[in-house]
């Protein structure tokens, strides 16, 4: 499939898209503010994949490389949004951080909605650190913020999410 895509074979490209679109949309949704934005991200990402397929050097998995391109596309979109001056500061939240959750109760869609309501900067840091495994230094360099800001945004995002999940679970129990 990779060889076919490299040669520009449209059928091979379609097969690759069909195999990975769903999974990559899952990644994009976490970074985007809306489903519409995530689909836009997915489209841009796949076009980049097919156009720059020559730059994949065979280091790491092909899927990992594609995922990285999706994340980079998300970062570029975030930067573009940032330039339009839409930044929201989060209020300081008190840390409790000791609670564990039974997340099995929650659907991914519900979690996504929570993540998507996070202010852009927090969402980026949380995604990159907690779900993608970037270091604070990498995040600081990519998003052009200080390492300290990355750390504080991560902890605020976590606290905020925990709070929301707790509310959601409580609501679920109440409704039952």
């Amino acid at each position: 499939m990779y060889e076919g895509c490299k040669a520009g074979n449209r059928q091979a490209q379609e097969r690759l898209y069909r195999a990975l679109a769903s999974k990559m949309l899952g990644v994009c949704l976490r970074y985007a503010r809306s489903t519409f934005e995530a689909e836009d991200m997915l489209q841009t990402g796949f076009i980049k994949v097919f156009r720059h397929i020559d730059s994949y050097r065979g280091v790491g998995s092909f899927e990992g490389w594609i995922r990285r391109i999706m994340v980079n596309t998300a970062i570029e979109m975030y930067r573009a949004n940032q330039r339009s001056g839409l930044t929201v500061e989060m209020d300081a939240v008190t840390e409790d951080g000791q609670q564990t959750f039974s997340m099995d109760e929650l659907e991914c869609e519900d979690l996504l909605k929570l993540i998507q309501t996070l202010p852009d900067g927090y969402r980026m840091v949380f995604n990159m650190y907690a779900l993608e495994g970037f270091s604070h230094r990498e995040i600081a360099e990519t998003l052009n913020i200080s390492e300290g800001a990355s750390k504080s945004q991560l902890s605020r995002a976590r606290t905020w999410l925990r709070e929301k999940i707790k509310q959601l679970e409580g609501g679920n129990y109440e409704s039952r």
Binding site: A21, G26, T100, M103, L111, A130, L131, R158
Partner: peptide, 17 residues
């Protein structure tokens, strides 16, 4: 642990394109 829980949750996430 919280991060891990979320990561596991999203690992199998396959929304319809």
């Amino acid at each position: 642990q919280f991060d891990e829980q979320l990561r596991e949750k999203f690992e199998g996430f396959r929304p319809d394109a």
